[in-house]
Design a binder for these strands. Structure first.
Lengths: 173, 173
DNA sequence: GGTGTCGGTTCTGATTATGAACTAAGTTGC
DNA sequence: GCAACTTAGTTCATAATCAGAACCGACACC
């Protein structure tokens, strides 16, 4: 993305979020962090990522406030990387991505199933309207201008497209 | 990412999803598609993206089955790009990303507010357990192996706890 | 027939990723 | 005491990828 010359960053929260986590390695690092990995070498081995790239991404995540870097031992000073609250709150996005992958890209069932910690049953993720007291699907979403803008455009494409050529469902490597 | 030498793609749905949409431009294109944009030049102007890049990303999205390319007029043959069902179902991920950006990166309120189309009230997004009939937060998520593996590791970092040497929690690829 | 629109492609230079090697501060083995 | 190993990096040269400017082609408009 060109420095900042395009749309002002504040104009779109998605664009702003992508400034921080809009990188494949970054998201995979976060995925691993959610799984419990904390150390440089654990990330490096798991992802098979080049050291300079990992170093760079971790630094950026720390700078952005998504992770923290704290010493876990002194003698040879060693650090571990953990998700901050800001980082933990990225989980809905990662979960959504994972479920999408499960649904559309997996050939033989989800590799990992997320469950409600309390009861052990698979979780669902969705949209909820407190007023109507009901859940609803993506096609029932509309968007409204926030406090500073003045447009109103639909977030959902206005037709679920009649034909949906099955052939194209193949995944790309 | 190295070709395919690391973890088998099917082992992680997030990695698989990133093969398709793990690119900043791609996600912004999808965002615009959700807003209703359909034509090459509309995307190009809105994003201020280089033509070859847009061309490439759109082609990849079509190949992956996330969008379709269909002629909307004949004389000078012109095409439009639309989300398929597969693409529409990415909305939870985009919404999650947007809400995260709203919460953590916006200085003066969300630029755009998403609402329930039926009643006009702001929507909520969350995790839901059908069994317990209740919503819950990211910290109440655990993960279970899918049909093919045999491990059990929590997806959420178990809080700002004192020590819990990451190494022991390490996942298995 | 000149200008404009739309949807691209080609070419080239800039950015980014990569692996290999090196550093640094220790620990462990013998 | 010395070699080998661990962890967390950095530096460097090269390879791959990306992005931007300019161009192309088919048509519309006037």
């Amino acid at each position: 993305m060109p420095p900042s010359s395009e749309s002002p960053p504040t104009d779109c929260s998605i664009a702003a979020a992508l400034e921080i986590i809009g990188d494949r390695w970054t998201i995979l690092i976060l995925r691993d962090a959610f799984r419990g990995l904390r150390r440089f070498d654990d990330f490096r081995k798991d992802l098979d990522i080049a050291r300079p790239v990992l170093s760079d991404r971790l630094r950026k995540l720390v700078d952005a406030g998504v992770m923290t870097r704290t010493a876990y031992q002194q003698r040879p000073e060693r650090f571990e990387y953990r998700l901050t609250r800001m980082g933990i709150e990225l989980s809905p996005a990662l979960v959504a991505l994972m479920r999408w992958g499960d649904t559309w890209l997996s050939t033989d069932g989800p590799p990992t199933v997320l469950v409600h910690d309390v009861c052990g049953h698979p979780l669902e993720q969705g949209f909820w309207c407190r007023t109507c007291q009901e859940t609803f699907s993506p096609s029932d979403i509309a968007s409204r201008p926030g406090l500073h803008s003045h447009r109103t455009d639909p977030i959902s494409p206005d037709t679920p497209d009649p034909q949906l050529h099955g052939a194209t469902r193949a995944r790309v490597t």
